[in-house]
Amino acid sequence: MATASYKSEYIRLTHLRRLYSGILALVLILLFFGGFYTADRRNAGGFFNGLDKLFDFPVEVISEAWSEIDGLPELLWQYIPSLVETVNIAAVATLMGAIIGLLLSLFSTRGLAFWPVGIPLFRRSMDIMRAMPEIVIALVLIFIMGAGPIPAMIAIAIHTSGALGKLFSEVNENCDMKPIDGLASVGASWGQRMWFGVFPQVVQNYFSYALLRFEINIRASAILGFVGAGGIGYDLRNTISWGKGRYDDATAIFLLLFITIVLVDQLSSVVRNRVLGSQK
């Protein structure tokens, strides 16, 4: 009897669970299609009208670029400086973000903090930095400083500090306290404890996260260029808004961006695997 009641109870629970999952899935699907419908209605061109035209623009661009294929290497060469600027923006922003994030993470990890009372303060400030979309800071800084790479750099650096600070502090939380306690017992200062006790444990993870962030930041830097912050995104906007006649330029920029992103992506995953692999 008891087994039978367990069985019926189990089946009842399974059914209930399936019902809940079904309802959840249904809500999700309804939300998705409702959202799709709303977004479609508020779009200038509808989804189904646009679908036929999806390849018109790429075809137009590629056919124009194809007819002037001889000039392509020269164009690629011409846009290298903008590409370097975009990569530089990302690199400096990642570097600055990593340094600030490192300090913030040390200040906001329990057990390591220099000033433990301030932990919530530093955590909240990291949350705010993380929540700030780059475009907000970039546009405001462009108004103050004029267009150029620096607003984009600062904007990305602020967001990166928050994002890396959070990841770094999660790494710090997992670090072994024994070396730090040992250093404290022989009278090491806070800086010495961090430098000799914490860094050797976490530096590989830090590096791996920073590299991942660099990848993300290259994309961010390109996209910020499009709203006026210099680099290759800015050139892309100019050539695109020029329209016909400069699609060969647009193709060159597309190619450069694509190659850079794929290259950095592959390189960083190789380096990250090696660095994290050497840890064990």
Binding site: A39, N43, G45, D56, F57
Partner: peptide, 11 residues
């Protein structure tokens, strides 16, 4: 690319 086909908007 997509804004050429679908025009401006959330979609």
């Amino acid at each position: 690319i997509l804004s050429r086909a679908f025009g401006p908007g959330p979609m």
